[in-house]
Amino acid sequence: MTKEWSPRIVAFFCNWCTYTAADLAGVSRLKYAPNVRIIRLMCSGRVDPQFILDALARGADGVLIGGCHPGDCHYVEGNYKMLRRFTLLRRMLADLGIEPERVRLEWISAAEGEKVKRVINEMTEQLKALGPLGLPRKFAEWDREVIALAREVQDREAAAGPCPERPLTPEPQEAVHA
């Protein structure tokens, strides 16, 4: 990769509030960092924690979830359910060593185009300071480590002599993450 690294943020915006606010930011011609890719959902309650993990695993440096303010959800309470999942996910991410700034939940109402701009700019700056998360690269490295380890074990066993139950030349281990 020859060009300078810039954070990539995947955003899940709810249709009624945050997506509309992002549209308003567009209509108002506010300018903000181009690092965000917005995926539209009907409600922040639809966000499955797996989406967030998958995005990070595939190379996103940060994930932004946008929903309606508490009490204002178009579907009454979907955003509260999102909040619950998000709180648990945060703790899990901390255990995994992923910085809390990388996964962010914001309440943005349909009238808050300015907030969309502010949040995206802020998050981009924070992630620039933190640097790339680079999970795909890390996965590939770990896979290589595992393969190298398997090869080493194989060599040692070959040197130690044949064992009746185990084949002499075991199958090489495949990368665990495609």
């Binding site: 409600c43 639809r46 989406f51 998958d54 999942r85």
Partner: peptide
């Protein structure tokens, strides 16, 4: 009403939302 809250929380992934299926979003 199609909010998808149940979809996002089903532990077995057995709820499917038209137009916003897991496959589609992944």
């Amino acid at each position: 009403k199609g909010c998808g809250t149940c979809v996002g929380s089903c532990p077995s992934g057995s709820i499917v939302q038209n137009l916003f299926e897991d496959e589609e979003i992944f």
